[in-house]
Design a protein around this nucleic acid. Structure first.
Lengths: 204, 204, 204, 204
DNA sequence: ACTTTCGGGACATCCCGTTGCT
DNA sequence: AGCAACGGGATGTCCCGAAAGT
């Protein structure tokens, strides 16, 4: 029975529901019906607030990209503090413990979604691209500060780190990989460019 | 009209059909109907030879893993020849120009497939895991030969290289990334451990 | 933002919106949402002023029947002037160039609408019935004036003329049939009863 | 539970089911679900045998056009026998007592159907056009035989008769109009061109 | 009294596993 | 053993009626 009462923050509720589904069961489980059911609302609500199911997905991913961007800012602000490898590891762990790997899964399999997200910036795989940009921005800041080599090829290292993280986390059954695994991977990739390895040693 | 005549190499025909679909349209397009239609055989054939559609996928992926393994052997045999970065770049380009990225896409989104492939070796993302093993095997050989540092952490570098390649190729609309992009990425990752950078310089 | 201010002539605005939709896209496009959107008002307005969507349609068609009736009066007043075939042709062209064919389409496919319109006068197809009455009324006048045979069976000729016009105009892609086609059809039907064929000759 | 047994004459069964629905409840009731339910088969059957629901409708209407054509042949063969008005009345009664009026209703409201049926012959309203051709063919034969005036404008009279019949029968609640009403309408339209009125006089 | 939203039924379509004939 | 069809669940979308809030 209709209530006539506007739902509170419909978009956010649907976004959150989508996130819960993705985290729980992966991109294959995110259907429009599963979504509205998880959100506890009627099917019509979805199409009232979004053009399309793909339209919803597009806006949903875009919304999470904003979150990624906020993580990017936080990471860049951490430049110069702690250790390079530590900062990177923390950021990657946070990033991939989130819904991000599932987003990449969505982008890989949903053709329409990928196409729409491409319309703005046609280069690269949508979500992964922004994640790499986040890393690249941080690396540039550290290079400026002199904590990594002037010759470090940031444009190559950033996607490398993202690709690594993606594969480590791209599954929904595993227990999330421990932070240590991430740290070791990051340390290996960054070995050639980080100036003071001692900074990156784990506190015993 | 039913023939009753056994088809020749049904499994291989279906595998090839699946590969064509994946290369042409990505993992989202690989349905059981698309498969049998592409193979030019009846739907029933699929269930005669395979338990399930997911069963087919499992065997299909397993079959392609054999191909990856053959690539691994070839790569390992190349140890000591050419340059390390060159060998790695060539191998990655070959690997990701193939159906491999689509396989990873399948594994990421098809829950049942991923689960089944996990039953044997529960660690890591199935196809990516084998690809990483291929790289790791080669790196070990080169380390043995002294062309990369004794301290190189192969267990970290290999998945890194695979993750990088995956993101570079995980789309079906883009023109395939050129070999040079791969080479640059590999060079960055390997910078710290390859002994003789001159070996990796591109022939002018 | 709700205004609380009564809209001016809500009913007429909705009627006009319905007419625009019918003329533009045919009866299949007349949904309640399309209607309120075309009228630029909220969905609720419809149910405030009408019992039902079918209730709206009923009143809408009834309203247009008034227009048909006014056409009928004008036509009857033309009795004795011009030529019989000319008068009939003009009237039919005007009638079917209007929203009338779409109304008949509505009546044919919308069961509830047809049923409700039938409740008053159970004989015949609603809108077509009134259109035929319009013709019949005119023919009666002309018979009175002696311009058509005393024996002319008006009750038969009128629906015939309407049916003819309906089929000539019952499509929304065609360019509207030219007036000449209508004239020829009318002339054929009326051939037996019009007294002075010369009156019906086209001005050279 | 699937049977594996091919249904007998699936197409005909679906056609017949569609016809029953149309006769019982009119064009508005002919949905894909109503169809398969009436036919007592699964939804999938429809899409296995027809491209589309509109595809089904197109083939269905086309199939009934064949029936109309057979009626046309029978009518033409009757030329010279009985009376002109009698033959026409019988043919029209048969035609419109059938599913034909509902077909015209379908064609009027289903845009896609109308468009597809138009692709072959773009002139006129599809089903009505063929029905008119049936009448025209008969009238031509009678004119040849001298039973109607040499000057009879067949191209005008035929659609007129169809239009008349359409309106007389275009409803699904009414008791079918009696044959006498049809006869009177036909007699009126044909009055000017039939040579021997006595032939058309009703047997007292 | 108008506006906005929700609720949910229906519709056309897709897809997969099964079944019986050839 | 291959073939061809069926059965039916699920998906995304549309549409109408109803119930608030402003």
């Amino acid at each position: 029975v209709p209530t006539g009462v506007p739902l509170r923050d419909v978009r956010e509720q649907l976004f959150d529901a989508a996130e819960r589904i993705l985290l729980r069961a992966g991109p294959g489980a995110l259907t429009s019906r599963a979504l509205t059911q998880e959100a506890g609302c009627a099917k019509g609500v979805l199409h009232r607030h979004f053009s399309d199911f793909d339209g919803f997905l597009t806006e949903f991913v875009t919304d999470r990209l904003v979150w990624i961007d906020s993580q990017a800012t936080a990471l860049r602000d951490a430049a110069g503090t702690g250790t390079v490898v530590g900062n990177l590891s923390d950021a990657l762990t946070t990033l991939f413990a989130s819904v991000t790997p599932a987003l990449i899964g969505l982008v890989i399999t949903r053709d329409v979604l990928r196409t729409r997200l491409r319309q703005a910036k046609p280069r690269g795989l949508p979500v992964a691209r922004e994640a790499a940009a986040m890393i690249a921005s941080y690396l540039a800041a550290e290079r400026e500060l002199g904590r990594i080599s002037a010759g470090a090829e940031i444009g190559e290292l950033a996607p490398t780190l993202i690709g690594t993280g993606h594969l480590l986390f791209a599954s929904w059954e595993d227990p999330a990989p421990d932070a240590e695994a991430v740290r070791k991977a990051v340390a290996s990739v960054m070995a050639a460019v980080v100036h003071d390895p001692s900074l990156d040693a784990r506190p015993a």
